[in-house]
């Protein structure tokens, strides 16, 4: 169920402001791709274009192509709602729905679009998704309690369970660990390693150790100055980016000379 993503000459705008320019990128199925770069370089903006969440912001738009297994997400007649069911997303701050129980949070996506699910199927899916997110043992006795009673790390894993419950093909993670402590971060990183077996994963991170730990490929974004658009500088195998990058800026960034 994982799919290949191909980005062709993508420009991303907020109204008239060009935030990201000329991205060309191929993301292979069942791999983890990390997007790194200094703040404001457009990596979060870029990742949101991969499931059309970018255009939720008023005035935001995109020029170029994003092909998921050859189908352009920005083609005419493509419904963003359908795109987002295929390409799930986990956000920087854990955001389980506070008005729902843990169980209902997991089922939230499944119950959308007028889909019905029998109670036994729902029970099964809740268990499977929570196990898939390594959360089942911690919450199985309190599935009817509100989701925001959990710790930050548990909440984030609940969000991952909610995302995988709708069986997407790709999972996008926008700095999923930046609000978490090291132990919770480790739990999420282990989980990413497992999810890789089934899903194509793209992760934005500020933490270069994290990028080198979890990802197969790393893409480095940079920005020439404030007000200028962010650009994809270099993309390669993670090991290469961190040991022997071909561009000087990348080497300076990963070795901590700036950023």
């Amino acid at each position: 169920m994982s799919k290949r993503i191909e980005v062709n000459d993508l420009d991303v705008y907020y109204s008239k402001f060009k935030a990201v320019e000329g991205v060309n990128l191929v993301i292979e199925p069942r791999s983890v791709t990390a997007l790194i770069g200094p703040s404001g370089c457009g990596k979060s903006t870029f990742i949101r274009t991969l499931n059309r969440m970018h255009e939720v912001i008023p005035g935001a738009w995109v020029d170029g192509e994003v092909l998921v297994d050859g189908n352009n997400l920005y083609g005419p007649g493509v419904d963003p709602v359908r795109v987002r069911r295929q390409v799930g997303m986990v956000f920087q701050r854990p955001n389980p729905f506070p008005t729902m129980s843990i169980r209902d949070n997991v089922l939230a996506g499944v119950k959308l679009n007028n889909q019905r699910i029998s109670k036994s199927d729902a029970d099964e899916l809740v268990e499977k998704s929570l196990k898939g997110a390594n959360l089942w043992n911690e919450v199985k006795d309190r599935l009817d309690r509100p989701g925001n009673g959990l710790s930050g790390g548990q909440q984030q894993r609940l969000c991952i369970a909610r995302a995988i419950a709708v069986e997407p093909e790709v999972i996008l993670m926008d700095e999923p660990c930046s609000a978490l402590d090291p132990i919770s971060t480790l739990a999420i990183e282990d989980l990413i390693e497992e999810l890789k077996q089934d899903y194509t994963i793209v992760i934005v991170t500020h933490n270069m150790q994290q990028a080198s730990r979890v990802s197969d490929r790393t893409a480095f974004f940079n920005i020439a100055g404030t007000g200028k658009p962010g650009k994809l500088i270099e993309v390669d195998d993670t090991a290469t980016i961190f040991s022997n990058p071909s561009i000087k800026d990348t080497e300076d960034y990963v070795s901590g000379k700036f950023g």
Binding site: N51, M53, V56, V81, R82, R84, R85, G88, M89, F91, R93, N95, P96, F97, P98, T99, M100, A108, G109, L112, N113, C159, R162, A163, V166
Partner: peptide, 27 residues
């Protein structure tokens, strides 16, 4: 917006986003 985006990212239409997030939150 955090929760509105969560609903949209799950593939909710605008009305579904309102039903799952805005109305319960505003109740």
């Amino acid at each position: 917006p955090l929760y509105e985006e969560a609903a949209l990212a799950l593939g909710a239409t605008r009305w579904e986003m309102i039903r799952t997030v805005v109305l319960p939150f505003g109740r």
